[in-house]
Design a protein around this nucleic acid. Structure first.
Lengths: 475, 475
DNA sequence: GGGTATTTGTCCGTATGTATG
DNA sequence: TCATACATACGGACAAATACC
């Protein structure tokens, strides 16, 4: 009955046990061997095939482990029931897809010779040497802990180092307990929506940071747009609304660049206090102010624990690391502890390295270097634009941050301007996606990030922009 | 009126502009300077203080940027209204909290001298030297990209390397496009719930992996428990249910260790096909089978694109890296592309390093080394238990994976057993949290992970367990 | 129906060519 | 280069299940 095994046998290079395994598996799958049929005993097969028992034994064990057969000890191996199956066809599309795979990033980035990307940072400033040293050291020093999952809220030692840094340098008072290390703003927001109960309305800056807005939508929130422009923040809209939470970027509103005045900060805190609402303070580029000290953050003024503060390493260090942190009011801690197992946070190795980086004072020094560098770039960019465009564009929102907003005096719209710039190989941004309801009135607003490009590129870029737009500008 | 400025001035080391800024700010905040009052002109102050214009100008700009004052061009600077405020008090609790902060992980772990933690992996096997080399190399080679956010679905090059590896070694056919790199199973599940529309019922193994269950609950899903025991998987429950999705761990069911037979796999796929349902295949320790080849994964048998495959680097490499991946059916890709900006994924640096690690063949070799090491440990543990306990405990679910289940023949319950073991300094696990409805009938089931401890610790641990439990065991 | 011989799965020590470090 | 480890294959020992008398 099982003579079939003697066919295409032995002349291949495949190990015996695999050949045996496969032949039985296929025959069971194809119904050639009916269900619950006793397979030849190991020794019977041994004689028939004239080999040792071991390959047969191994094959049978595999069949059994994988559910094609079962063993009755001291009785025999039996096939299992799998009549209707007809498996092991290969999928069609896969190979096609493999070939058509696009290396999406590269192909897009290549098209522009100069990219005023507001999300990029200065690659030459990244402290490769120091960071390498940190990584190498922690891999040695923490090798005992590398086999285990760490605290899902973030390594205790990093949270401690961060709390110290925030207290000393940013005036933010918090316990390491309140800090949650995360993998990015989206992660933090997503986590937040799980922590806050019964809040379904979120007030959101208009325009505002779209990825965060999307995250709230994805988590079932309804948005209440609060208009932000150069002069004001529409509190009226907030008061009238059902919002129990608001997302703001006070230190440098994204994208307009507006700095929220102290009075408005106090107002917001009062509102949150009265309504028992929460304020999410996204201090994404709070490290970068070019005029004196940073403004006191909402978190540091807050007395009532209504502020959730979010900071990041993406701007001051590198976005490649994807590490950020969130400071939560104490009342969240117990709930957070309960759900800590369903969190995910960055590599422990990176966290240890960052801890060492901060503790050894590198972080503090790095920030100072970055601030100076960006201050120069910032100044240079504004100077460039003013020299080249004179009064034909207006620069706004430039007290801080890593990008500026310009208002271009033309009758064209932002999209047209982008296209003209792209034709010259320059990428600038209109951030239309930051608006819930795009507002086309007035002159178009264009955004330029200056962190990611060099001063010479910047100069070239602005000159190219002048070429691109020169003829369509008003005086 | 503003002579106050002349007080405590000049004898400090603080920069002039900050001293000026602070004095005005405080006076405005405290109401000493009423609202809408004209501040001294820049030149007037210059004369009064006998310094240059610059510090005063800077201070005024800061005050203006931060909303303490506003400028009327060609008229002067004016204070703003902020009567009622009394800020800059420090919060009370913070310092207390700082001191009481517990280094939670360490304090817990210290209590046990031997920990059969199923989540740990062998720390000595981590290829420190090679990984260092990878990190150092990519920090040099990719330094041009370090200033930018990468693809939020994961670096294209890593996804390519992974697809190649999966095809060659695991029989999993997929395009790099379908792969999403993530920061852990919770992240992947959370992402998944956002991708799948209209699915509110999820069938879940009972017992099953609790963190994932929690993640579904957090995302608003209702659970349908599907009982799993040594013999069977209760498909009847599945058929009757409204489930449109099911989460399974076929290669080594968590926690029972059961390997899902081929027939059941086909059944599941048929069910999913008929119901248009999705199967989430969590192949968390699929690399570790100790008998021949791995069983074909659901993903590789599936013809209809109903399987979502999730794999991880946490078991075979290190949980400290927190990197995993998910293979999605093609139909999800367009939706995924749309929400890619609200994702978060692991450090690009780690992704590049992992790509190099795979491409240079280290990954393949590493897996083999790990498999062998764990095979030996696995064998050793089972041998130990059998020698020490003879027939008093029964070992089940041990064809694969990094932990085993034992059934202890006693009238005590699992909790008691854990406590007795803990008294001897040994940590074992009852995984009660893996059950939705704890089932106390029958002998208690205890789980031992063997990946994280050495063979000698293992031996000691089992002997200590014998001491702890010896007197309460049945024959 | 009970004893005995045989069959059978299981476990183990060993040999050999090859790959790894 | 060489020692080692590993995958694969071999055959013996054992004890439980089965068949036979």
């Amino acid at each position: 009955m099982f003579d079939i095994l003697l066919s295409d046998f032995d002349n291949s290079e495949h190990p015996l046990y695999l050949q045996i395994y496969k032949q039985f598996r296929d025959q069971i799958l194809n119904g050639i061997i009916p269900s619950n049929t006793k397979l030849p005993s190991i020794r019977a097969l041994q004689l028939q095939l004239n080999i040792s028992k071991t390959p047969i034994e191994t094959a049978y064990q595999m069949l059994s482990a994988e559910g094609f057969a079962y063993s009755k000890p001291r009785s025999g191996y039996y096939s299992v029931n799998m009549d209707e199956f007809n498996p092991f066809k290969k999928k069609k599309e896969s190979n096609l897809l493999l070939n058509s795979f696009q290396y999406s990033d590269l192909s897009v980035e290549k098209k522009f010779s100069i990219d005023f990307n507001p999300a990029a940072v200065d690659k030459d400033m990244f402290p490769i040497r120091t960071w390498k040293r940190m990584l190498n050291n922690v891999l040695e020093d923490f090798s005992q802990s590398i086999g285990q999952y760490g605290d899902m809220l973030g390594e205790a030692s990093l949270r401690k180092a961060l709390a110290d840094y925030l207290r000393n340098s940013r005036g933010v008072l918090c316990s390491p307990k309140q800090i949650v290390i995360g993998t990015g703003i989206s992660y933090s927001i997503s986590l937040l929506t799980k922590l806050v109960e019964g809040t379904n309305y979120i007030a959101f800056e208009e325009p505002g940071f779209e990825p965060v807005r999307e995250q709230f939508l994805l988590n079932g929130y309804k948005l209440i747009p609060i208009t932000v422009n150069r002069e004001s923040f529409q509190f009226k809209l907030l008061e009238k609304s059902k919002a129990q939470m608001i997302y703001v970027t006070p230190s440098h509103q994204f994208p307009t660049g507006r700095v929220m005045p102290y009075a408005e900060r106090k107002y917001l805190l009062n509102w949150a206090d009265k309504q028992n609402a929460y304020i999410i303070e996204d201090d994404y580029d709070g490290e970068f102010r070019y005029l004196g000290q940073p403004i006191p953050s909402l978190q540091s003024i807050d007395q009532q624990g209504r502020v959730i503060y979010i900071g990041t390493f993406s701007k001051a260090f590198t976005p490649a690391l994807r590490m950020n942190y969130m400071i939560l009011p104490i009342e969240f801690m117990s709930k957070l502890q309960k759900m800590k197992h369903s969190l995910s946070c960055p590599s422990r190795i990176d966290q240890w390295a960052m801890q060492a980086f901060i503790e050894q004072g590198h972080w503090y020094r790095h920030i100072r270097r970055m601030r100076n560098k960006y201050k120069r770039k910032h100044h240079k960019l504004i100077e460039c634009i003013q020299t080249v465009f004179e009064k034909k564009v207006e620069i706004t929102g430039h007290n801080a941050g890593l990008h500026i907003q310009i208002i271009v005096k033309t009758k064209l719209n932002a999209k047209d301007l982008l296209k003209l710039a792209a034709d010259k190989g320059v990428r600038v941004y209109d951030f239309h996606q930051m608006w819930m309801k795009p507002n086309e009135s007035g002159y178009p607003q264009i955004y330029l990030g200056f962190a990611g490009i060099s001063e010479s590129e910047m100069e070239k870029g602005i000159l190219l922009l002048k070429e691109a737009w020169g003829s369509i500008l008003y005086e």
